[in-house]
Amino acid sequence: MIATPELIEALAANAAPVRRLRPPLVRAALWLAFALLIVGLLGLSHGARPDLAERMRHATFVLGLAGSVLTGTLAAVAAFFLSLPDRSRSWILLPVPTLVLWLSVTGYGCLTNWVAIGPEGVRLAETARCFATLVLASAPLWLAALVMLRHAALVRPRLVASLAGLAVGGLSATALTLFHDLSATAMVLVWNIGIAAFAVGAGGVLGRRMFSWVAPPPAIAARG
């Protein structure tokens, strides 16, 4: 271990000018614009689900959709704020109300209208297409979030990765709801809640490792 004064000398000698990060709201807006672009492109290539107009007349559908969009958006904003060392941990509460709305509307829909299997039975092809949409929507969003939030690796890696996961999960679930006709209740549950829960859990468990993939932290990790 080198002496602290020597370390300070070495760091001062390496003090190249740095570009300050833009305000967290601006960065969150940039990420959300990218998310809009991805979902828009997917919509163009895939087309909306056939019964979208009819569905939009149902309050539960609209509320559930609003829940997932808002949860994704607010979780992204919270992640960008929390990735900065001097911001309060209370930002974690930002997406909670909309998350509750999303979960309760989805749960209510499932309870009142449980459709074990859709009229056409379990459609493997549709399930595969759902999965493809999910991967195409979430992979670029997830990568962009990891790169834009990489500085959080040294401060709150798990929390920020979980919130980023919730943001990606919320927006991917929105894309699925808009593009795919999910008739079986179990499918609705899996594609909405399952994905979000998986993304949040993965962020919590693997957050540190995920960030080190995109940006290996400086000497600190090597010392650990």
């Binding site: 271990m1 080198i2 602290t4 370390l7 300070i8 760091l11 390496n14 003090a15 740095v18 570009r19 300050r20 990060l21 305000p23 990735s83 900065l84 060392p85 001097d86 500085h151 040294l154 401060v155 932290p217 400086p218 000497a219 600190i220 010392r223």
Partner: peptide
């Protein structure tokens, strides 16, 4: 811990916003 914190300050110095107090930023690190 002091040396790790100094290295982190170095790695994250672009995340500090001079319009905000320095203390909370340093203390979290």
């Amino acid at each position: 811990a002091v040396q790790d914190a100094l290295l982190t300050v170095h790695a994250l110095r672009h995340t500090y916003d001079p319009a905000r107090p320095f203390g909370p930023w340093l203390v979290t690190i």
